[in-house]
Amino acid sequence: MQMKRQYHHYRRRRQYQNSSPIAQRSLPPFIAAATTIIFCCILLLLVHAPAPVQMRRLQRCELVGELYILDVPKSELSLWLCIAEYESRYNTHVVGNRNADGSSDYGLFQISGRYWCQPDNGTKYYAFNECNVKCSALLQDDITVAVECARTIQRRQGWSAWSVYSLYCNRTLTEVDDCFE
């Protein structure tokens, strides 16, 4: 009889263990708390995450056309094209790595957030905002603001404001006439 009771007890316990879902099994408290915290963080990130940014990579002649429409002189188009190619590879939404002073460079022409635009996050390195724009405005698919700011920089500091100018763009440049055919 004793043996029969033990068998039934063992069988009931086994059935209970096999039929219970994992959620009903108890976890150590620290694992349960950690799991809850991780789940909540993931949920918050999903709810409050910004919409994905669609990066626009312009084609060479597409950029030439947009610059020309924005009244960049035809004689300067090759220079602007060279700067955009080496600074951002024609990508409108590029934010460069942090500079030594903590600032970043923004957009098609990699314009400095320390001097030329106001970073959105209120960082301490922000100093001047000479173009009177938010840095995020330099990351738009519409390149009008980026071109206006780049023209301001070029008028005040010349082409050498971009380090790529002396390295790559102060030599023989690719003509853009093929973009007007």
Rank of each mutant, 00 (worst) to 15 (best):
F128T: 14
R60P: 00
D141Q: 12
T174E: 14
T92S: 12
R5V: 15
R171S: 13
L58Y: 04
G107I: 00
G65V: 03
W80G: 09
D178S: 15
L44P: 05
A34M: 15
L77Q: 05
Y115F: 13
L108N: 08
L77V: 02
Q157W: 13
V133G: 02
V176E: 10
I37L: 15
E87Q: 07
L79D: 07
D177Q: 15
C135L: 07
S112V: 04
E76P: 10
S163Q: 02
H93D: 11
Y125W: 08
E87W: 01
S163H: 04
S20T: 06
R114T: 11
Q59G: 02
S19Q: 10
L70K: 09
P28Q: 04
P28C: 03
D101N: 12
I42G: 14
S166V: 09
L45E: 08
C117K: 05
Y126N: 15
C117I: 02
V72T: 02
C82P: 01
E130K: 14
L173A: 08
E66T: 10
R151H: 07
G102K: 09
R11W: 14
R5G: 15
Q110R: 11
Y168F: 12
Q15T: 13
Y165D: 03
F109G: 08
A137I: 00
A150M: 08
C135D: 10
L138G: 01
E87H: 08
V53M: 04
H48N: 11
W159P: 03
A23K: 13
F39M: 11
I111T: 05
H8Q: 12
K4A: 12
S104I: 06
M1S: 12
C41W: 01
L108M: 06
L27C: 05
A32L: 14
A137S: 08
L167G: 01
N97Y: 07
H8R: 13
N97H: 07
P29H: 09
L44R: 08
L45R: 14
